[in-house]
């Protein structure tokens, strides 16, 4: 029996600006994707297998990045869908919404247990963008399902408030022990806890992505949709993906192949097919 295609909804809040490229990246990995308005009919959400909150500046980052969007009713609906096991990925500003709404890390569901604070960088302030190397700390999440722990990938970051912090003593250790720290910033060969600029924002222990305990809700600061194709990788990048890119120079066919961010969307599809639907294709 033919399995129905995976359907993903990208949620367009006022102020997001990455919804179109996120949709293209999802579709490039063999999934269907629609962009839904944040204030649209709630019942439509149930039609989808998973959800992505894309990057941008919801409500112009007023008060605090993600703080106002976290209070929108659609977040309550996403919370219910996530409770049923469906994946919800927040990318950058989407991650800020998931953290501000308490969906991640969700040790006590709905309780705000972390913050994404302003970047701390030597001799700089505010918004900062660069390609980062990331070490996969857990392959049990919906964004790393097709990867292996300790794999190193490379994805760009671009934000002013991306530093994972908490005042809950011991929480960070528990997140590592539970496999809820999904990715950390690393050196090009996976070296742990690097300094700036490899850790671009001063994030606690280099954390770049955190999930809930089931791995189906992930707040990640890097932008995988900006690394979905090899052609998007800069030739100057160090590490494996930079070498791949330089090796593909001049070949349009190879440059059109998936880049490092593509693995995130492959993971999303396989997570849904293998874990949510089961290998028999059951919904």
């Amino acid at each position: 029996m033919m399995e129905s295609r995976v359907r993903i909804a990208v949620i367009r809040f006022p102020g997001v600006n990455c919804e179109d490229e996120t949709k293209r990246a999802v579709e490039s990995q063999g999934m269907d994707c629609d962009i839904l308005m944040w204030n649209g009919p709630r019942e439509r959400l149930a039609e989808y297998d998973g959800y992505i909150l894309p990057g941008g500046f919801t409500y112009q980052d007023r008060v605090r990045a993600g703080a106002i969007a976290a209070k929108d009713r659609i977040v309550d609906c996403l919370f219910e869908e996530a409770q049923a096991g469906k994946p919800v990925i927040g990318i950058c500003n989407g991650a800020q919404i998931l953290i501000e709404s308490g969906m991640v890390p969700g040790m006590t569901p709905g309780k705000v247990e972390m913050g994404l604070a302003r970047n701390i960088m030597p001799d700089r302030d505010g918004y900062y963008t660069r390609w980062t190397h990331l070490r996969v700390e857990s392959d049990a999440s919906c964004v790393t399902w097709a990867m292996s722990s300790l794999d190193v990938t490379s994805i760009p970051t671009a934000h002013a408030e991306g530093r994972f912090v908490t005042i809950d003593e011991g929480l960070i250790d528990r997140l590592f022990e539970n496999g809820q720290v999904v990715m950390t910033y690393s050196g090009a060969k996976g070296e742990a806890e690097p300094a700036f600029p490899y850790n671009p924002n001063g994030s606690t222990r280099g954390i770049a992505a955190v999930s809930n305990s089931s791995g189906n809700v992930v707040a990640m600061m890097p932008h995988p949709e900006r690394a979905a194709w090899l052609s998007q990788v800069p030739e100057s990048l160090s590490g494996h993906w930079g070498a791949e890119r330089r090796g593909a120079a001049g070949s349009r066919r190879i440059l059109a192949e998936p880049g490092p961010g593509g693995e995130v969307f492959t993971s999303l599809r396989t997570f849904i097919v293998e874990r949510l639907r089961g290998r028999g294709g059951e919904a």
Partner: peptide, 9 residues
């Protein structure tokens, strides 16, 4: 709660 995230503020 809106104005302050107690983990960063």
């Amino acid at each position: 709660g809106l104005f302050s995230n107690p983990h960063s503020q």
